[in-house]
Amino acid sequence: MPRVEHGWVSVFFHVIAASALMFLLLPIAMMFPLSLEPGTMLRFPPQGVSLHWYSDYLKDGAWIASTILSFQVALGAALLATVAGTFAAVGLAQASPFVRNAALLILMSPLFLPTVVAAVAIYGVYAALRLVGTPLGLVAAHAVLTIPFVLLNVQSALAGAPRALDEAAMSLGAGPVAAFWQIKVPLIRRGIAAGAIFSFLISFDEVVIAKFLSGTQAVTLPKRMLDGIFYEMTPMLAAISVLLVLMNAALALLALALVRGARKDT
């Protein structure tokens, strides 16, 4: 049992915290019963139990095409962001303070600046380059958006691979390339994997940039959901939401386990 250190304040905070957690989780939990509705209207409690909205989703060509596109875009973005972000994180560790601060400022900016501004700015350039509505354009934009997450994860993994280990390897006869592949990469692989998973997740769910860059050709799953919520609230959206919640939870848990494992290694 936790020690109650602050008397009634502590009791009060526990009550608020419990309610706040309900407030956080309730909307997500709602998706499960709503998705089982047999009828065409969202109802709680559902009028019966049916999985037909799930099978409708799986049979709907447009939805499935968007889902596949989202997977492709997210995989591409994660790959690009992971490779670029991992090299960058290693480079940051070697750079002089000036280069490090300048590079961090640039590389982390997509994390802090409003996505809508980024979306508008990129849209302006893409429109000129005819990249709106292309999967490649989405991949590149999402990669930029998720590089900070790779950077953060690999950077914290690098704490478990101090410079001294590279130097030890070099003193034992390993050149820079051998030291990178035989020492650095094995030690930070969990951080790389966690960064890749987070990039995938973010890209897969990303909707603001997708809204601008999807055009009519490359409609991602979130973009299609956004349109769906605008125009027609059906139980199918709840069914898709359930699938998204499950996938995200599984991936996020995996990534967190990797991060924990990486911490334990050191």
Binding site: L80, V83, A84, G85, F87, A88, V90, G91, L92, A93, Q94, A95, S96, V99, R100, A103, I106, L107, S109, P110, A118, A121, I122, G124, V125, A140, A141, A143, V144, I147, L151
Partner: peptide, 20 residues
């Protein structure tokens, strides 16, 4: 030091984010 490794990410972010 480190600039070579930083280059791909910096290029990506600059071309697709800073320049826009």
């Amino acid at each position: 030091r480190g600039l070579g490794l930083l280059a791909p990410a910096l290029l990506l972010v600059c071309v697709l984010f800073i320049v826009p």
